[in-house]
Amino acid sequence: MKVVTGVVGNDIHVVANRLIDLSLKARGYEVYNLGVNTHLEEFFDAVVETGAEVLMISSLNGEAEGWGREVKLLKSKYKNLDDVIMMIGGNLVVGSGNTEDIVARYRKYGFDLVCHQIDLNTGLDMLQSTIEERFPS
């Protein structure tokens, strides 16, 4: 299973990104890590180039909301991204917020899995179950 990951926007918080890279590999995923400072278009383009099944976006510095709003429009310009599992995690709002509202909002933006301030391993377990549902073996 291929995963494209990275930190969206002008966000330079790199620690979580390194951990995500390592943890995904440890769980057997083929990882394409775009690193920090990655634009939305680069994420989608990387999915196209690699044929990844999962797009896992991180955001730590509070920019996520702005990018989230762009997702639908940009994704509609691509002809073959409909089946990709879209996941986002980190600090998804500026300051604190009600998790339920946050999750609902990001789902509207087009994300299947929303992990606001959720520990990485919990998030990766959620991904595992989603994959099992989508691709029953």
């Binding site: 989608f44 383009d45 990387a46 196209v48």
Partner: peptide, 11 residues
């Protein structure tokens, strides 16, 4: 040259 690729950011 004319280039045919599949994405703007990579190919």
């Amino acid at each position: 040259t004319l280039i045919i690729g599949i994405t703007n950011s990579f190919s």
